[in-house]
């Protein structure tokens, strides 16, 4: 009889003794969900262009990981494994439906490597969504009309019956708040920029 023992590298870099009991394992998976679920979906949706399908793929990846969880030991490795699995399953999903990848993300067709730009981007997208939801109501409304519906300032002003100047101020404010909110996610991006 093999006793399940799981060593996990947590975000803070601490070694965390996981496993042994089913409750601990649940907590570990709960932690993975909170940390990576949304980003993984945003990652998968690049392939599927459909969020429900993306969510299904991520669900399958997690269930498969639950079944063979004992083979992966560090959280860093877990994250890479999850993204790789999502990419593979997404490609299979496309192949099964005889669809091709969105040319916008053509590079993803070959699968991904760890620390891929797109994994960071997917995380940012998940955070941006959350951050936008937290904007002050009017500010958020203006920002969504601009970014989600791609309206010009004038169109937004007309839609909301406000001045173009107000739209501009709200847009400016929105980006200021979002940048403040997403600072830690943007730092990494800057480092990558320098490398390029």
């Amino acid at each position: 009889m093999r006793l399940y023992l799981h060593i996990v590298m947590t975000g803070s870099g601490q070694m965390m003794d996981q496993g042994r009991s089913g409750a601990d394992l649940r907590m570990f998976f709960r932690h993975l969900y909170e940390e990576h679920y949304k980003a993984l979906c945003w990652y998968a949706v690049r392939y599927t262009r459909d969020m429900p399908a993306a969510e299904d793929i991520v669900h399958e990846v997690f269930v498969a990981f639950w079944e063979k969880r004992s083979t992966i030991d560090r959280e860093g490795a877990v994250k890479a494994y999850l993204y790789r699995s999502v990419a593979n399953r997404s490609l299979n999903w496309l192949r099964d439906r005889k669809q091709t990848i969105n040319p916008e993300f053509a590079e993803l067709a070959s699968g991904v490597t760890e620390d891929d730009f797109y994994t960071d981007q997917a995380e940012l997208e998940a955070r941006v969504h959350e951050a936008i939801a937290k904007l002050p109501p009017r500010c958020g409304e203006v920002f969504r009309l601009s970014r989600f519906e791609d309206l010009k300032y004038r169109e937004i002003a007309e839609r909301l019956n406000i001045s173009v100047r107000t739209v501009e101020v709200q847009m400016s404010k929105a980006l200021q708040i979002l940048r403040e909110e997403l600072k830690e996610w943007l730092v990494l991006f800057l480092i990558l920029l320098r490398i390029w």
Partner: peptide, 15 residues
Amino acid sequence: RIWHSAAIAGRHPQP
């Protein structure tokens, strides 16, 4: 980057 991410984020509902 936020600008573009927001555009992509706007295409789909948050999971």
